[in-house]
Nucleic acid binder design. Sequence first.
DNA 1: GTTGCTACTGTACGATCGATCAATTACTCT
DNA 2: AGAGTAATTGATCGATCGTACAGTAGCAAC
Lengths: 232, 232
Amino acid sequence: MASKRHVPKFHRATPAVRREALVDATLRCLKQFGHEGVSVRRISAAAGVSIGLINHHFPSKSGLIAETYETLALSLLDSIRRQAENKAFSPRDRLSNFFRASFAPEILDPQLFNVWLVFWSMVAHSAEIRAVHFSTYGKYRSVLESLLGQLVESGAAPPFKLRPAAIALSALLDGFWVELSLSPTVFKPREAIAVCEDWVNALCQGGFPRLLMTHKPKRTEGASSRRVRGHG
Amino acid sequence: MASKRHVPKFHRATPAVRREALVDATLRCLKQFGHEGVSVRRISAAAGVSIGLINHHFPSKSGLIAETYETLALSLLDSIRRQAENKAFSPRDRLSNFFRASFAPEILDPQLFNVWLVFWSMVAHSAEIRAVHFSTYGKYRSVLESLLGQLVESGAAPPFKLRPAAIALSALLDGFWVELSLSPTVFKPREAIAVCEDWVNALCQGGFPRLLMTHKPKRTEGASSRRVRGHG
DNA sequence: GTTGCTACTGTACGATCGATCAATTACTCT
DNA sequence: AGAGTAATTGATCGATCGTACAGTAGCAAC
C-alpha cells in the first residue's frame, strides 16, 4: 500500500461538454475513415469513452451526425465570412476574399470532401440531416446574397435579383469545389478563382441579362430560336 | 408422376450476359438503398441469383461497383451527347440542347444523385473507382470541349482556351446538379438552364477575359487591386 | 462520512457484412 | 446416352454493426 490515493477510472463531464467532445471525435473519424468512420465503436474509441456513452447523450447515431454536420458547416461558414466581410475592403474585394477563402487548402482538404459526402448521402434518408442541410445551406446563400447586395449598393453592379444570383454563384463555387476535391490534378484552385472573378465582373457589366431586374424575358433560351450570338 | 419433364433450378448464362445482369441489379440497389444497397446479398437477391455468384464473376465488390460506375456514366453521357450533337442545330443551339438534357427529370432524379454519391465516396479509397472516375470525367469534359470548339469555329465566339472553359462550364453544371438534387425546392431547373445560357452568351461576348487566348494576364484578381468595376 | 443523482461502463444480443469453397447441376460435345 | 466443363449454389466463417440495459462509480450536497 504505497499510496491510498484514489485514481478515478473515468471523468464525469457536463452533458454539454461531453457532447462537444463526441462531436469532435465524430469529425475526426469521418475525416479519417469516411463512411466506415460512422461507427459508434470507432467514435467512442476516438473520444476515449465507452461504447454506450453515445446513446446516453444522443438519441441515436444520426442525431450525433446531424449535430456534427451543423457544427462543422457553421464553423466553416463563419471562418470564410470573417475573411470576406472585412469592412476595410470594397464590396467587390470582399467577394474576392470570399473566393480565395473558399479555395484555401483548409477547405479543399480531400478528407473534408469525404465528410461532406457522408452528410449529403444522409440527406435523402434522415429528416434530421435534411433539416440541418436546409438550414446551413440557407445561411450560406444569405452570406452570398449579402455580399452581392453590398456590390449593388456600392454602385459597382447594376440592380439584379440577389437570390438567383447567389444560387448561381454558390453552384459555381460548389461545382469547382467538387471537381477540385475529386480530381486535384486536372486544374488548379487559382483557375477556379479566376473564373469566379470573371463571373462577378461579367455580372457587374450586366452580362447576365436574365438576372437583371430591368425586365423579365418571357421565355428562356430555346433551341428553336436563332439567338446564336444574341446579347441575351 | 404426372410429368417427367425436368425443371431447371437455375439458368446458365454467358459470363458477359451475367455480368451485365449483375451490373443492372447493382444499379437498381444503389438507386433504392444508396450506400446500404452496396451489399452482395441485396444485389444477388435483386439479380435473382445466389450470394456466391458475384465473386465468381467479379474479383470483389469494388470491381462490380467500378463496372457499374463506368456503365452508368457512359450511358448517361451518350444519352446527353446524342441530344446535343444534332447537326441540324447550330453550335450555339447544340449547347442549349446539352443544357436542357443535363437538367431533364431523368438526370435530376434524386435517386441517381445518391448513386453518384456512392461512387464519389469510393474515389478516395479505391484505385479502380478512381480510374473510372478519371476516365469518364475526361470524356465528359471532351464532349463539352468539342461543343465549345464548334462554337468558336462557327464564329459565334472569339477564340478562347477550350479546356479551362469546359472545366468551368462543367463545374457550373455540376454545382447546379448537386444543389437541385439536394434541395429541389430552392430553385427550378429552368433557372439553372437560364444561367448556363447567360454564361455561354457572356463567353461569346468575351465576358471572361481570362479564358480568352488574346493575352495572358500576369496576375489573378487580388484584393489589393482596386479593380472594383474593372473590365477584366 | 453518508447519501443520492446520474454520467458512465461494458457485456450481450441479433443482424448483417464480404469472402470462401466444396458440392451441385445445367448444358455442350462426342 | 454418357462424360466433361464450368456456371451456380448455399452453408459457413470471422468480423463488425447499432442498440439495450443492468451494474459501476464519480462527485456534489448535507
